[in-house]
Design a protein around this nucleic acid. Structure first.
Lengths: 103, 103
DNA sequence: TTTAGTCTTGACATTATTTGGCAAATATAG
DNA sequence: CTATATTTGCCAAATAATGTCAAGACTAAA
């Protein structure tokens, strides 16, 4: 699995010298699970991303962006012509005009 | 759900005037299920995409591309700044150098 | 080296999501 | 109207994800 997101929160956490245990508590999950999220073995839930952004005092939108990017990466990393897939998607977005739902 | 892929196979099928029933048989699934795939209510499995490409006599890679794009679209359509997410992914691809696995 | 704290891993249980079939409903021809 | 094709809703089975527990590994301090 991809680690775009995990690496980001790990870096932020280390900068602030917070133990995993503490963030895990905030998210109300086991430290093992939190560890896996940082390593990219488990995917954080959307709501957990919001909590993490707050706890790590970082930009929520950016974190969500990396979190989404991680998911996308996992899909296209397995395919040839990953870049071309992105192009198709980009066109579709323009065409159907995106309508964001959640924040 | 997105219909990039479904619309494509529907168009191809109609061009060739093949009933859903026939393609469903080839895929060894119910016509109802096949119908859902065209409408974007169900996702085709990767192997099914390969079979469809053959049955519809169309380019396998292109169909796989649309199939992947569909999955990606579903992920980012829910988020703001969808385009920016794609950018993040594009950068990651360049960085980690993709290694395609399957065909 | 022992201790204490942190982090990591693997096996497993639990949940959630996805997928497919069936039956019924709704088009679409002919 | 009749026959065929397509679509929909609902349920069961299959699959994937999420989380915990227990044990192992790593580090730094004494």
């Amino acid at each position: 699995m991809s680690t775009i997101f995990g690496n980001k929160i790990r870096t932020l956490r280390e900068e602030k010298q917070i133990p995993q245990r503490q963030l895990a508590a905030t998210l109300e999950i086991d430290t093992a699970t939190y560890c896996k999220i940082e390593k990219g073995d488990r995917r954080a839930k959307r709501e957990q991303v919001l909590i993490l952004a707050a706890s790590l005092q970082t930009d929520t939108k950016e974190l969500l962006r990396l979190w989404s990017a991680d998911k996308v990466y996992d899909i296209i990393a397995e395919e040839e012509e990953a870049t071309q897939i992105l192009n198709v998607v980009a066109e579709s977005i323009v065409k159907y005009k995106r309508k964001p739902t959640k924040v």
